[in-house]
Amino acid sequence: MNSTSTNKPYITLDKISKSYSKGKKQVVVHDNFNLTINRGEFIAIMGPSGLGKSTLLHLIGGLDQPTSGNITVDNEQINNLSERKLTQWRSENIGFVFQSHHLLPVLNAKSNVELPLVLTPLNKKQRQQHAKLALKLVGMSDRAQHLPKELSGGQEQRVAIARAIVSDANILLCDEPTGNLDRGSANEILALLATLNKDFGKTIIMVTHDLNAADFATRTIHLEAYINQQSAINNEVTTS
């Protein structure tokens, strides 16, 4: 697993605008949004619904394209990549953890974790070793043969995290990973993410409403305040 951690900007969102059509209306989600994230940071993005938190995550993860502006990840500008290259880039660099874990119900925990490795040149034995290791890291070794329906919500989310880290992606994008969990399970997941960040140098960007998240993250961005602050800076620059 990667353990590199430096203070160089690792992810840069440069003057990002994002809008989409809703019927005849054009909805602007982000306008000239800037953000830099260093390698090895654990960022919690918080804020009220409808402010574009998940959109931000999707843009960084290459699931969505900005209307304008540039997104650079590890010196690679991803907003210009073709669909095919972007898919490959995601498989190599990004691990996703969703609020609904989206585990395949027909596969046991180990096979679910092994899934992203099907795209790699690893052989069956190597894939199984990686999956075992990932499950061990999230404390789910003893549930490797269980189907998702035989696991609790917290356990399912742990398996989803194991799936996100199994291909040794440097960036974990977590969209409300604790949203469906009780307090105890939520804290366990946050602690697990913090461990992955501290011990394995994973850059984690987490969108959450969980107020406890700030205790685990290295930086918390309150999006509403952050956007207001940016607007003020932009206005200042324009007037001067």
Partner: peptide, 13 residues
Amino acid sequence: LNESAMMKAIGFS
């Protein structure tokens, strides 16, 4: 569809 979207997200073409 959700599973297909997830698989596309994690890199399946």
